[in-house]
Write a protein that binds this DNA or RNA. Sequence first.
DNA 1: CTACCATCCTGGTTGC
DNA 2: TGCAACCAGGATGGTA
Length: 278
Amino acid sequence: MPELPEVETVMRGLMPVMAGQKINRASINREGLRWPFPERFAKRLKGARVQGMQRRAKYILMALDTEETLLVHLGMSGKVTIDESGAQPPAKHDHVVLDMENGVRILFNDPRRFGALDLLDSANLDSHKLLKSLGPEPLGNAFNPEYFAARLKGRKSPVKTTLLDQKIVAGLGNIYVCEALWRAGIAPQSSSAALDPAHISSLVTHIRDVLTEAIAAGGSSLKDYRQANGALGYFQHSFATYGREGAPCPKPDCDGGIIRIVQSGRSSFYCPVCQQQA
DNA sequence: CTACCATCCTGGTTGC
DNA sequence: TGCAACCAGGATGGTA
């Protein structure tokens, strides 16, 4: 579920209730998720104060006053719940529970367990295995047409696949790649190397725009995704292609319909009429 | 370096 | 209504 806009939204929800607060108690209800939790996980969290937090790609990084940083990755099915009452009993798949000094309880839930929690050395965040190979942030200045063109050059795989590669640009997932390609009018199976400069700068612009709009909407709620405060995101109502197989293309004056194809085992939704093959 | 594929899991939906 | 098959927002790690 969570791509960059959803992770950003969850982080923004956690910030006001966690920043500046000490972790009074950490309950670890299983050994790990995607990977085992770090050694003495609960002990290292207990008593630590959350100094601040930032998002990198699809990761939330919470800086603690112990020179360690708590990394949170929601994977496919991860959710975070803020319980203001502080007494909500952990439910099924609530694997980690943090009780903050302000009385708020934070519950990390992840049925499929593709998510991850880890503790990193705050002085060497970039050397962590999950962070060291990440490409630039799509909303930052380092992701620009020049950089993107250089990374597309000589790449034989389809542009859809390239955009999902976190080493090229970090934070996009299946949904927002489909949406950005539709906005840019580029077919997902276009060869990466075949994109011309106009395609490339259009794609950069539309990637930025769709992510920015989705963040403003609180992310997209598919299945039961919610913001950390329990509110539903509403960007899913703005999807042009994702999950809309058989529906008319929403582009004005386009008489095409959205179709679904499979690329590298993932669904791609697009309009074969207005999205040109480069 | 690039490309391809299996894999980690649960749960919701679809189809017989 | 039961049950099996299939599908899902991610990303690693192995192999070629």
